[in-house]
Design a protein around this nucleic acid. Structure first.
Length: 577
RNA sequence: GGGGUGGUAGUUAAGUUGGUUAUAACGCCGGCUUGUCACGCCGGAGGCCGCGGGUUCAAGUCCCGUUCACCCCGCCA
């Protein structure tokens, strides 16, 4: 058999008259009477093969056997398209040449395809997953897998040059109830491992061991319902550092992000990145993972009302007396929204999850009056003008006013602003807005089981290393990194004091016994340390402008956690012993 | 577990207040075409309209159930 001499992206005019051998797949095939054109594809690119009738009377006979996606070998001579009387194709790297075929071998045939392989189709995802090996031939998907490969390479290079050591931690690990559901792996004698949810405790013990700076591209497993940005198994860029505070860790990550955005997207990321406290994020965006590209900010205007006790408008008065909040979302005049669309928002099924709230759409007329007029008449001038000033409101702008109790205000206001962002296409997909969220509460109260739950995880240090009497107002040393409204990663300064850790386990109602190995480890000179994990799949998704992480994983599960390609998971009748 | 949207040819979609033989594009098969590259032209095959009930003289279309997919909520320490 002939040996491949070049890939389908290699050849140019400098190879004129060379005899070459290419191997790949039939991308397109076109007959023009006696002359045939074939586009040969491999992962590097495309090369046009021409079959001239004067070289063989048999080409037509042979080529009639060839179909798309046959795997073939071409031996031929590199020729100039122009000199051959044709025209160049500026869309491909090899567009100036073509290979005049002398010999062709079919390496393997292909059945007719279940769907066409090109850049434009939007084929049903289940079918694509069933034929993932074909879908992965699509240059568009190959680009995403290649981007992931580049990211992995850059990650190793960056952390290596910053003295981080790559260390693998166990995937078969200890089952700890609480938190995400685990995948259990039977061992023997009724003993089970659990697939690692994250390398958290191992990496902390590496710090205790003195490795100082650790990183790993870690596979994590969580037995929870999947989403567009969540899979049962996923990868994270996991790091941990000793003797470092928040700003040192953030700085390492910021430089990493600047490095990869430059290398992968050719974007000059400005660092340090913007920061927003957890409370301010909720106040301004209604979410703890705001999208800074959003044009629709929220402002809580309850405090303005509270300063005016003699409000005539019953609607507004209601707010104060019932301990509700009033939030406004400002819509500049260039984004006009119809009454119909306002009704559509109000009737959206999502909002039926909430009760005791009200949504009002207010238009500002040319005289800077609020419409409907009844509203404007009953609210004192000074309140109106304060709000107008706060948002820098101009005529023909409009506002959404939301009145609701605290616990559903964030969800409702975020729902409305993201509706508006979608409607007006304000989220520029080539813009990358990173953001740190800081000052998270340490815990939150879980209404369903009447227990405190860590907001981050139970190993997160409280600010100043102390628990306040009121646990609910204790802040933690956790930080999340958000990119375009998606939580890219999170981390914290950890607890390195065994007694404090023990105390927190107790407050959180966690069984101390199951973590005794860890408390023991902390007792042997554990250094102060902290770290962070970045979602690798999500990073690839955002960098490749994909709508789900399934696009960035070679063999993903579908949204129900099934591997359509292999048919896993399966019922096992006779489990191996 | 809850909600939303969808399922029509190999693929992607259209299908009007229920009314002749269910359309189109791409793909596939056959023919023409010696410079195409989203080539072009002529012809052809291809359908349990997701599945099961119901209403009706008549259902792709209306109703009920069910299933599968995607998105969202719950969940993801």
């Amino acid at each position: 058999m002939l040996e491949r001499t070049h890939t389908c992206n290699d050849l140019s005019l400098i190879h004129l008259n060379n005899k070459v051998t290419l191997m790949g797949w039939v991308h397109t095939l076109k007959c023009l009477g006696g002359r045939w054109f074939l586009n040969l594809r491999d992962r590097y690119g495309l090369t046009q093969i021409v079959f001239k009738p004067e070289h063989s009377f048999e080409w037509t006979y042979i080529l009639k056997e060839i179909k798309l996606e046959y795997c073939i070998c071409i031996h031929g001579v590199v020729e100039s398209r122009v000199q051959n009387g044709g025209s160049c194709n500026a869309n491909i790297a090899t567009g100036q040449i073509e290979v005049n075929a002398l010999q062709m071998y079919i390496l393997n045939k292909s059945l007719n395809l279940p769907f066409q392989i090109n850049n434009k189709n939007t084929v049903n995802e289940d079918l694509r997953l069933e034929y993932r090996f074909l879908d992965l031939r699509n240059p568009c998907l190959q680009y995403k897998i290649l981007l992931r490969h580049k990211l992995l390479t850059l990650t190793r290079k960056y952390f290596n040059t910053h003295k981080f050591i790559e260390i693998e931690t166990p995937i078969l690990s200890k089952y700890t109830p609480g938190g995400a559901h685990n995948f259990l792996v039977p061992f023997k004698d009724n003993l089970f491992f659990s697939l690692s949810e994250s390398p958290q405790l191992y990496k902390q013990m590496l710090m205790i061991a003195g490795f100082d700076r650790y990183f790993q591209i870690a596979k994590c497993f969580r037995n929870e319902d999947a989403r567009g940005d969540r899979q049962l198994e996923f990868s994270q860029i996991d790091i941990e550092m000793s003797f470092s505070n928040e700003s040192q860790i953030k700085s390492i990550i910021e430089q990493f992000l600047r490095y990869i955005t430059k290398k992968l997207l050719n974007i000059n990321l400005v660092i340090p990145l913007q920061q927003l406290s957890y409370n301010n994020a909720l106040r301004k965006f209604g979410t703890d993972k705001p999208d800074l590209r959003s044009k629709f900010q929220h402002i809580d205007i309850t405090p303005i009302l509270e300063r005016h006790h003699n409000i005539k408008n019953l609607f507004l008065k209601n707010i104060i007396t019932n301990n509700l909040l009033l939030k406004a979302i400002h819509i500049p005049a260039k984004f006009s929204i119809s009454t119909k669309e306002v009704e559509k928002i109000k009737k959206d099924p999502y909002l039926s999850n909430f009760s005791n709230f009200k949504i009002l759409h207010v238009k500002i007329n040319n005289n800077m009056q609020w419409m409907p007029q009844s509203l404007s008449e009953n609210i004192q001038e000074n309140i109106l003008s304060k709000i107008n000033k706060l948002f820098n409101i101009r005529s023909n702008d409009s506002l959404f006013l939301i009145i609701s109790p605290l616990h559903c205000m964030q969800s409702i206001s975020f729902f409305i602003s993201s509706f508006l962002d979608k409607k007006f296409h304000t989220l520029n997909s080539s813009s990358f807005k990173f953001l740190w969220i800081t000052e998270f509460p340490l815990v939150e109260w879980n209404e369903s089981n009447h227990k405190f739950k860590s907001l981050h995880h139970p190993f997160t240090s409280p600010i100043n290393g102390k628990l306040l009497k009121n646990l609910q107002i204790t802040k933690s040393r956790a930080y999340d990194i958000v990119l375009n409204g998606i939580e890219l990663g999170g981390g914290s300064i950890r607890i390195h004091d065994s007694q404090l850790q023990s105390k927190i386990f107790k407050k959180l109602n966690l069984n101390k016994k199951q973590f005794s190995f860890f408390l023991n480890a902390l007792s042997f000179g554990a250094p102060p340390h902290g770290g962070l994990a970045l979602g690798l799949d999500r990073l690839c998704m955002l960098f490749s402008n994909s709508t789900s992480i399934r696009e960035t994983i070679a063999f993903p599960k579908n949204s129900n956690g099934f591997d359509i390609l292999t048919g896993a998971p399966t019922v096992i009748k006779n489990v191996q012993k």
